[in-house]
Nucleic acid binder design. Structure first.
Lengths: 76, 76
DNA sequence: ATGTGACTTGTAGTCCGTA
DNA sequence: GTACGGACTACAAGTCACA
């Protein structure tokens, strides 16, 4: 399921850039470590729903708006 | 963030009942443990996005449709 | 301002039960 | 068919140093 994490990270990065924020700034308002924020965007980690909400809140968008629509690759 | 997990679990349970599935059956098609499925619905755990997708797929609905809309209680 | 390695700690998630 | 527990294992969460 690295596909999912990668797609999610890409969405987050796009939204972050759209909001003209740095990883540092976003990480700060999400209350996560700067380096961890980078890993999320690179799709290296599979975040929990709680993190998703924190990030969405910091980006000022709906949590669902960050979710990639991949009906493909759901199972393995 | 137990509020979030509880609301999420409630949504999942509603969708599951709407689909006329047992916890066992849902857990099976989600490829998660039976007992864990119960904990999810009771809001005792904070699931990862990957699990969210697996559950949504098994329920035949959109992952975003399971997410509760709570703008409140996002931060602590 | 971001990527990455090497961690430690907390909890997501499994597998066995019992009621 | 569901709730709940104990004892695990796997990995998300979080921190730091150094590129």
């Amino acid at each position: 399921m690295q596909q999912l994490a990668k797609a999610l990270g890409k969405n987050i990065r796009m939204q972050r850039k759209a909001a003209a924020l740095s990883q540092d700034a976003l990480a700060l308002s999400c209350k996560v470590d700067r380096s961890y924020m980078g890993r999320i965007e690179r799709g290296e980690v599979n975040i929990t729903v709680e993190k998703l909400y924190r990030i969405a809140a910091a980006l000022g968008c709906n949590p669902g708006a960050l979710l990639p629509t991949l009906v493909e690759c759901l199972y393995d």
